[in-house]
Amino acid sequence: MAHSNDSDRLTLAQRLDLTAAASLHRALLTHTSPQIHLDAGAVSHLGALCLQLLLAAADDCRRRGGGLTLSPRSAAFDAALGTFGVPLSRLQTEAAA
């Protein structure tokens, strides 16, 4: 999993499945800034376990007055959000966009 060193920026792995969940969880927890920018441009698979981490992270950021931004996003990522019934606004906060 290749993370950017930039403190508020995180590049998501290509396959966000069961095996990626633990490391994504750790990565998200290390970001203490209320504003997190995620690069989902390379995501080819977004599984439900990683989705729930992103949802929790978005809530976390909001609680701290910030939010998530997702850019760029791969088609696969958007398609998965659609399938899961997750509107982008659920993850990405207006103020933060």
Partner: peptide
């Protein structure tokens, strides 16, 4: 029509990454 429910989703810090919290 798909509706996601995140009612039982804990805080990020309390999540067990292998547990399922979502329901549809």
């Amino acid at each position: 029509r798909i509706d996601l429910s995140t009612e039982t989703l804990p805080h990020l810090s309390d999540i067990n990454p292998e547990e399922g919290y979502l329901s549809w």
